[in-house]
């Protein structure tokens, strides 16, 4: 399951939105009598009667490199923020199996185990599709699975069974119980039929009854 960092987005929004609001208030204060009320603020506040071109010309030497640096930084930050909106899957690493003395016995690619677990989950009655992500190393593995449950299956029962099987299978393979098993259940729902439908089993029963 791929996700987008909400914390990073919130921080970016607070920073970006806050800076925009402060800049807007600073510019707008030129049209208010704030400077008359607080003359000490003259060095920091904009003057309503100053013309943009003259202000820039007066500070030309310093303003141009500063403005260039700020504009490039803003553009790069925008590109990075946009790239961060692509969902990413949680990171994983190779599983190192060690013996009691911490000597390396072998490595397992988590992808192999993920495929085996996915196949095992698809065998569970009521599951129509599954995907599993395994991470955290062999010492403290975590699992994140997504299963699609058929309309006629009891989702609660299937969910419990899938989590139990995932825990058992990982414990058997790695010798450590997973520290966390997250399961996202997708419920498959089919529209109510408008016409009469006969299931294969019902049809056989009907035939047997009439024979």
């Amino acid at each position: 399951m791929r996700t987008i960092s909400g914390r990073r987005n919130r921080a970016a929004l607070l920073l970006g939105g806050g800076l925009m609001t402060i800049a807007a208030l600073w510019v707008a204060s030129a049209s208010t009598p704030l400077l008359d009320m607080w003359p000490e603020g003259a060095p920091f506040l904009p003057h309503g009667d100053s013309v943009l071109g003259e202000t820039v010309a007066a500070n030309g030497g310093l303003l141009l490199p500063a403005a260039s640096a700020v504009s490039v930084t803003v553009a790069v930050a925008g590109i990075l923020l946009l790239v961060a909106q692509f969902p990413t899957a949680p990171k994983r690493s190779a599983l190192r199996i060690t013996d009691g003395d911490d000597r390396l016995l072998g490595s397992v690619d988590p992808g192999v185990l993920e495929r085996a677990l996915t196949d095992a989950m698809k065998d569970v009655s009521g599951v129509t599709d599954a995907s599993v992500r395994l991470g955290g190393g062999a010492g403290a593995p975590w699992l994140r699975a997504t299963v699609t449950v058929a309309q006629d299956a009891e989702a609660g029962w299937v969910g419990e069974l899938v989590r139990r099987r995932l825990t058992d299978d990982v414990s058997t393979v790695l010798g450590t119980a997973p520290v966390r098993v997250d399961l996202l259940i997708r419920l498959r729902s089919v529209r109510a039929p408008h016409t009469a439908q006969l299931r294969a089993s019902d049809a056989r029963n009907t035939e047997a009854a009439t024979a």
Partner: peptide, 24 residues
């Protein structure tokens, strides 16, 4: 988790790219 605020983040990113790119 709470929603990731993708739409406002995309809006902020596009605004930053447009303003920063034009000024650059």
């Amino acid at each position: 988790r709470r929603p990731s605020r993708v739409l406002p983040a995309v809006l902020l990113a596009i605004t930053a790219i447009a303003a920063g790119g034009f000024a650059s």
